[in-house]
Design a binder for these strands. Structure first.
Lengths: 300, 300
DNA sequence: AACGATTACGCCATACGTAATCATG
DNA sequence: CATGATTACGTATGGCGTAATCGTT
């Protein structure tokens, strides 16, 4: 039983497994092919497992290789995160870095930061904004300590709690037949196209549109793809679809040519506070405590 | 920005941080002190962070060092797990390893394994038993794929679902004043000593006794320490305390000198199925599906 | 032939150990 | 002075690059 692997080996393997080509992988790593080839073979011999099928028609992952690729990504991310967190903890004046998506929380983020600051002499807070998926990545990579997230997010490696729940509204063009309604249900809007997020290039973005805006039992009418909130609202204004946004998001982006109508039977939007699993940081704990004292979202 | 760390450095640092003494750490690692000292210093210089306070009165961790110790443990565990999972995935006939505590689930485990086996041509299942804390450790270290767990467990790095819920009973000596009762509430037994688990040497064992057997608002009457279930029952039989066990556990260990009485207001015992976070294994998914089809626990 | 992976071989970086040095109670 | 960390220095393991070889299409 040889004792283990080194990160260098995992970095090399990841490159090969992702490129499925030793030459390109070596280029990407900035080394020559032979050491790469040797390192992978040595690892295979040491573990007693074939990781790659080197057939004539190119290189393929074996089942074991697929497992190692997945695992190697986790280990390498964790190693980078370890360094990041250590360096940040060692700064003379450490900061609590709060990651969040821009303009998604109304005054909530501001209130939480204020409350956190007024709660004592903890490291001062600093907000880092990023698009969908960025806050969770920052947590995993050790570049942020805590994050405010909207409903569908990848919980891998994170702990989280619900901070607030708020109903969603339908955003309709002002020419829509239903703008006079006080309350809609999903059925009233069945068949209306719903724009889809394409923004961050993630597969999950499509998923987000589906899960975030509609319960899964409703089929999703295909709508135009949009890259951000402004495009989304423009699409709606142009009559290309309807959008379902949380009240606060909608309220922050009022337009004369759009109307908001509450919807009764859509899953409410939830805001979570999340942090790296097992974080022992007192500052994180203090911020989370602030979050959990937060009231239900005020309904305007 | 130097690119990162190597596992060797993290292994070295962990040894020093745990021993708080370079000499002992070097012995533990099987190397001489100088390379150890140099490696740590090099790491400090590269990261630009002091990890250890080397004062006269011994070596202490800095705040950053404490963070790195915690992180290093995670990374090293993840790296070992990566190897284990890869090796197991590469076996000619891979097995689904199910970790569980011995004799804690009545026929549940057997039923689940049978159901899993009859559900198709997946890798065959193999059960690995271990004391409290062992199943979760096996999952984290890549030595098991999935586990059946009882209520208080450390969820770090795991995903889980509830499989079954069952009420608890009080286990009383047959000489007890309340053996004729059909149903007790916690108040009836207030002040009775409750034996505590000492078994696995974990701090968590005490926590277990508290959270598992009693809601936290009840103060825990100090009871004798026991190492296993047999000792626990013996203590109860000797009149040294009362125990609160799940129905199925109690049922599997009937004794002529013990009586079981249902308790109304104690949190029920839950059985979970858990697996490494983000596991993509189809075999694990199949087993979890079997678990979720499981009915509520039959009440005898 | 051409492309991609592997083996052969010489070089250099770096991790190691021994021994000497420093700092502190 | 004794204990424990660091610096100095010579050695050697092993990871790298260049060049040659193998194996497919």
């Amino acid at each position: 039983m040889s004792d283990g692997v080194e990160l260098r080996e995992l970095r090399y393997f990841r490159a090969v497994a992702e490129e499925l080509n030793f030459t390109r992988a070596a280029e990407r790593l900035g080394i020559a092919q032979p050491p790469l080839s040797r390192t992978i073979r040595a690892m295979e011999r040491r573990l007693g497992v074939r990781l790659l099928d080197r057939s004539s028609h190119g290189t393929e992952l074996t089942a074991a290789g697929a497992v190692l690729l997945e695992q190697a990504r986790l280990v390498l991310t964790a190693a980078d995160a370890a360094v990041q967190r250590t360096v940040r903890a060692g700064r003379v004046e450490p900061r609590l870095v709060i990651a969040a998506q821009p303009s998604g929380h109304g005054g909530l983020l501001q209130r939480l930061v204020d409350q956190y600051h007024s709660s004592g002499v903890w490291p001062s807070a600093e907000v880092a904004l990023g698009g969908w998926g960025a806050p969770t990545a920052m947590l995993r990579e050790g570049r942020a300590d805590v994050a405010l997230l909207r409903d569908p997010f990848d919980p891998q490696g994170l702990d989280f709690e619900v901070v607030a729940t708020e109903p969603r509204v339908a955003v309709l063009p002002h020419t829509h037949r239903l703008i006079a309604a006080k309350l809609l249900c999903r059925q009233d809007l069945a068949g209306e196209p719903v724009p889809r997020w394409r923004s961050e290039g993630h597969r999950e973005a499509a998923y987000r549109a589906a899960v975030d805006h509609l319960p899964p039992e409703h089929p999703l009418p295909p709508g135009p793809e949009v890259n951000n909130l402004m495009e989304l609202l423009e699409m709606v204004a142009l009559g290309q679809g309807v959008a379902f946004l949380s009240e606060s998001t909608a309220a922050q982006h009022r337009r004369a040519d759009l109307v908001h109508v509450p919807v009764s039977d859509i899953s409410p939007s939830r805001i979570y506070v999340a942090w790296p699993q097992g974080s022992r940081s007192p500052a994180v704990a203090a911020f989370v405590r602030c979050c959990l004292q937060e009231e239900e979202w005020p309904t305007d």
